[in-house]
Design a protein around this nucleic acid. Structure first.
Lengths: 245, 245
DNA sequence: ACAAAAGTGTTGACCCTACACCCATGC
DNA sequence: GCATGGGTGTAGGGTCAACACTTTTGT
């Protein structure tokens, strides 16, 4: 049996990319644009998440991986399935109906939402056909379908998860400075963190490894570079049963 | 348009029930039994989660609520959507195929999994037609489909969540003793907790309110009863940005 | 009176927070 | 030499973990 599309199930991907130079946590969105037949009127002009239907021979994870690869060329990035969205009216705004008419979409589609973590420099947006673009999480454009809600729920999940799991490093390059990690936490959580305390805390972790290397090409005092070792983390990790309700 | 079943999307419910007298965290399962036409052979004899297809006019939450109500009569219980399961082969074990042939099931069904929290005494299993039965989370019977995996992932989510949110009280009666809360934490987490430390910690919470009441009908020293106040919790609650990676 | 579970205090270790100045480098 | 961000130490308070005996009640 040849793989076919499952028309009422899709996967949508919230691609989080951190831009280390602007210290901005961004979301990758693709343009949705449609003119009337006479080209007199713009019917749809907004952004949506990247996503696609599931094929009959794919797992949901496969679909998410495929969707990310098609847009960015990347594989092996951190991904998490965080929620399914299936309200009967989630695709039924007027603009969305116009759009659906033009695509092979079922009006009652349930989407399994994933988020990905990466850094923006890994993605080359030059020759992409979807007019994909990064938007800061705090300055999102007008969004189609229920994608605003999906993004916000992904963001909430990320906020919680980055406090208890070392996923922050997925948003950074392999080699980073302590202050870059701090900036990133501050961007995600929207809080100020004391530099001395944060620094001490991080450097004391066995899985934060100081490299024999410093920043190059900066116009100020170059900072010490570190890396995160997943191997050490897995070895050192032990479950913490602290009840904090 | 009349509501119809969406044949390839279902909701499955992991119903967690705490039995305060046996100190056991249980899962509610329903019997799956099928004989061959000649009745000579038992084709299927195991247990599955309760679940059902989504109707076209329902949200996923609606479906979960409906499924729980149909089995237990209960509404308004704590519920959480925690994961979607959609592997192409998740219903393709030999027994499952036999079963599916007998029901209106699509072979490639994606299920949105929820878990519910309640206490076992709320459920009357006497006159239920599904042969529903409680099983301790640590002594599950043979399970159909991928329901073992679904239960285990629900349990992992519960373990994590009960450390950071006051959902433990959903598993207890309205009035409870401190030691009952401790027993429950120990059952869920599989750890031993120091009674004095735990007691002090809980009693110091403003939202754990001592009642003017003690246990009755116990054959030993009756314990002080407490209640959990969601109102006070919401008022007192403040987000904790402690980074513990 | 006895069995059973309820309830009670102290100490030391660790971790978090708050806080301000000097240092190294590139320009 | 100066502007910029990198890097550094200490003290006080709070929270967690460890630990064993007394009290209250029903039978």
């Amino acid at each position: 049996m040849k793989p076919e599309l499952i028309l009422n199930i899709s996967v949508d991907c919230v691609v989080f990319g951190y831009d280390i130079s602007t210290k901005s946590l961004n979301v990758l969105l693709i343009k949705r644009y449609l003119e009337s037949e006479t080209k007199k009127e713009v019917l749809v002009d907004d952004y949506v998440l990247t996503g696609y239907h599931v094929y009959t021979n794919e797992t949901l994870d496969d679909t998410a991986t495929r969707v990310l690869k098609e847009l960015t060329g990347l594989t092996g990035q951190y991904k998490k399935q965080f929620k399914a969205f299936g309200d009967p009216d989630r695709l039924l705004n007027p603009k969305d109906l116009i759009w659906i008419k033009n695509a092979e979409f079922h009006e009652r589609t349930t989407t399994i939402a994933y988020y990905f973590l990466l850094n923006t420099v890994e993605v080359d947006l030059k020759n992409n056909t979807s007019h994909a673009q990064w938007f800061p999480i705090n300055a999102l454009p007008e969004l189609g379908f229920d994608h605003k809600q999906i993004i916000l729920e992904a963001y909430e999940d990320l906020k919680g998860k980055c406090l208890s799991e070392p996923i922050i490093f997925e948003l950074l390059p392999d080699k980073f400075t302590i202050n870059e990690v701090q900036d990133l936490y501050q961007s995600i959580l929207g809080i100020a963190i004391d530099n001395r305390n944060f620094r001490r805390k991080l450097i004391n972790k066995k899985y934060i490894i100081a490299l024999d290397e410093k920043q190059v090409g900066v116009s100020k005092k170059p900072a010490q570079l570190y890396m995160f070792s997943k191997e050490v983390y897995d070895k050192v990790f032990q479950k913490n049963y602290l009840i904090s309700i």
